[in-house]
Design a protein around this nucleic acid. Structure first.
Lengths: 392, 392
DNA sequence: ACACAGAATGTTAACGTTAACATTCTGCTA
DNA sequence: TAGCAGAATGTTAACGTTAACATTCTGTGT
């Protein structure tokens, strides 16, 4: 993803000896620019300051210092250095001091590769995700897995999967060549090889999926449960004509929410009207809203995410329908807090933190060989704000 | 971040032999639930299905298969296996076939640890970020670094830094014990040890920072340049009374944008009115909007991000001031596309992709020892939409 | 001063891979 | 059919670390 190299005249200043390309307008400035108020945009200067003594020296012996080097300098055996490095008790204070001094002097850092070669473990979990991490849900999931890992002193290694080829097999294959103790596959959409995927024997595998998999542990937000809770809530408030405004038809999350809505409507003996489907954006919500505005009998709308819910509300209000006085609206995700002033959108908040920690847990501490594969659905909670009231 | 263990009665089904805790409401369901329309929320079933032959077999010899095992089975030397594994030409097709068969049979995977111990490289870059990755800007940065890494066949390892102790030294220390060839430190706020930080000699280090650092390469979006472009644009449209509605006072991004605004106002001989500051949220924008609504001479407002710009616009409109007819408003980030229907907010879009690729590039292919430390500011582009027009 | 227990330190080997060199094949030429 | 070049394969050693065992200290009690 390098910038097209339309390098303009003044730009060559930024091309270092390494041959790095720069983009038009990109510039290097001298270290002091922030303290020079009359910021001069066209006067690009190349900085000259360099590291001092210690840093420069350290760079010299860049070619990794090994435990043997430290041992030689400290006048002890490699094993003793290892003991000091690992905080063993059985080292005389005087020796320890000598070793620490030698480490410091040489800038010794234990080699991750050598350590994990011995240990057979990495203390890292891998996460495979599609490239557009930003999409709500995915992003939050990612963040929470990262947090769970950090809580357990694990690092997280990310493998980006091309949006267009969501294949569990491919994701897993790439992960296998990386230093990970377990892998979490969060591909969002159901990948085409979901059924046929066989997890590698070498690393525990968890799939983030609302659908169970015969050979892998799976974790997910409980989409159906979410819809059940939301629709029950609306019914409890007294609503009977509850419409469903969904997201992308084939999205697993959308399907789950739709199913839950349908089920409760049936269970309660209510007649579900034609569901609508959008594409998760506010615009598609707006479009559905214009249609829903014509349904005079409808008193509540369950929208499959908050972004679309905003669109629905705009459309309703433009059509002269008040929310919540005339029609109640509830979304999913609880993602609109602090984004739109004076909009207190009722919503459903998933427990992404829990999903992350369960996924991490299953990936690093997999169930025993002969146990069944867990399929865990994590419930969220309904967030009451002000867009749902009893019908008039 | 485990769930408090108020495990209820029915819940113990979910407690596997591994002693894993489950949360109330969490459940395991049988694999077939999605195809069982009358979804029964209270009937939790534990799945029993297990892997078949091949999978089970593979699990057996879990304790990693080495190159020597493959060699033995294939009746060749380890070196030959290595050659096959690395796609060397110099292997007779018949031999290659035997080796591949042996690999397949045993489920051989080369050991990352051993390989990188030999190679001295990992093909992984490390990224240190504060825990709340979601914050606009940071998230996008993250995503773009991940993409840049993927483009170069690198994986990305994330180290989360506690929001409350943003220390470059600490971040770097943790990174040093991980398998990374280079590190990118993106701590957001300026960490307290920015000045005193000495990068490790072992791995190339890049800081994402609008301020240069004497010992490290630095990359950043050009905040000052952004403001300069935006304010010049407003001036070109004919605006003279241009107010600034900023974000968190001490945030580096906010400071840069403020400085750029101030500079252009001075350069153009315009008199800058008192700047306002919020906290990046729509609510704070709304608050600033109510104040700005009282300034009758102001014709344009430069808001330091889009979220606040939305708040400002709401407040203005509620005060009966039309946007853009009476007052033009422009934000930064271009983050509101598709979020609010019918709002076409003019904005400034940073080139985060470029920042990510430059950061990655500097981390994996650092400038030669005796070169000056680069400090690179990446410009963005102004996005004209419909909230800026010439003043009446 | 001597024996001895236990602490401190050292030695060896192994983790899995591959570069560099060594050896053995293969097919071809004279 | 010997000789040979070059292809195919094998052997050795090293990457940096640490578990397991071996050795050497140290101080204490006689």
């Amino acid at each position: 993803m390098h910038c097209p190299s339309t390098v303009n005249g003044t730009d060559n200043l930024a091309n270092g000896e390494t041959g790095r390309r720069s983009c038009p307008g990109e510039r290097r400035v001298r270290p002091t620019y922030t303290s020079r108020p009359p910021y001069d945009r066209d006067n690009w200067v190349t900085i000259v300051r360099r590291g001092k003594g210690s840093y420069h020296m350290a760079r010299k012996q860049n070619t990794s210092v090994s435990i043997a080097d430290v041992a030689k300098v400290a006048g002890v055996s490699a094993q003793t250095v290892s003991r000091v490095a690992n905080g063993s008790e059985a080292v005389r204070p005087a020796t320890k001091k000598r070793v620490l001094a030698a480490m410091d002097q040489l800038g010794y850092r234990p080699s991750f590769a050598a350590r994990s070669l011995r240990a057979g473990r990495y203390h890292i979990v891998g996460l495979a995700m599609p490239s557009n991490i930003s999409a709500t849900g995915r992003r939050i999931q990612f963040e929470n897995i990262a947090t769970a890992a950090a809580d357990h002193q694990y690092a997280l290694t990310l493998v980006q999967i091309n949006e267009n080829e969501l294949s569990l097999t491919e994701a897993s294959r790439r992960m296998e060549s990386l230093p990970v103790d377990g892998q979490i596959l969060g591909l969002g959409m159901e990948p085409y090889d979901f059924e046929s995927f066989v997890p590698p024997s070498s690393i525990p595998t968890v799939i983030i999926s609302p659908k169970p998999h015969p050979l892998c542990a799976t974790v997910s937000n409980d989409q159906v449960g979410c819809a059940i809770d939301v629709v029950n809530y609306l019914v409890d408030k007294g609503h009977q004509e509850i419409r469903f405004a969904g997201g992308r038809r084939e999205a697993p999350a959308n399907i789950g929410r739709y199913k839950g809505w349908l089920q409760v409507m049936h269970d309660k003996g209510l007649s579900p009207q034609e569901p609508l489907f959008g594409d998760w954006t506010a615009d598609s919500g707006y479009r559905m809203g214009t249609i829903l505005a014509r349904d005079k009998s409808c008193t509540a709308i369950f929208v499959a995410n908050d972004t679309m819910a905003v669109g629905v509300i705009y459309a309703l209000r433009e059509a002269g329908i008040r929310v919540p006085e005339d029609v109640s609206v509830i979304g999913v995700d609880d993602s609109m807090v602090g984004v739109i002033p004076r909009l207190e959108l009722s919503s459903y908040r998933f427990n992404d933190e829990r999903v992350g920690s369960v996924a991490f847990d299953l990936a690093t501490n997999p169930p025993a060989e002969d146990l069944e594969m867990p399929h865990i659905l994590v419930p969220g909670t309904l967030v009451e704000r002000s867009t749902v009231v009893p019908p008039r």
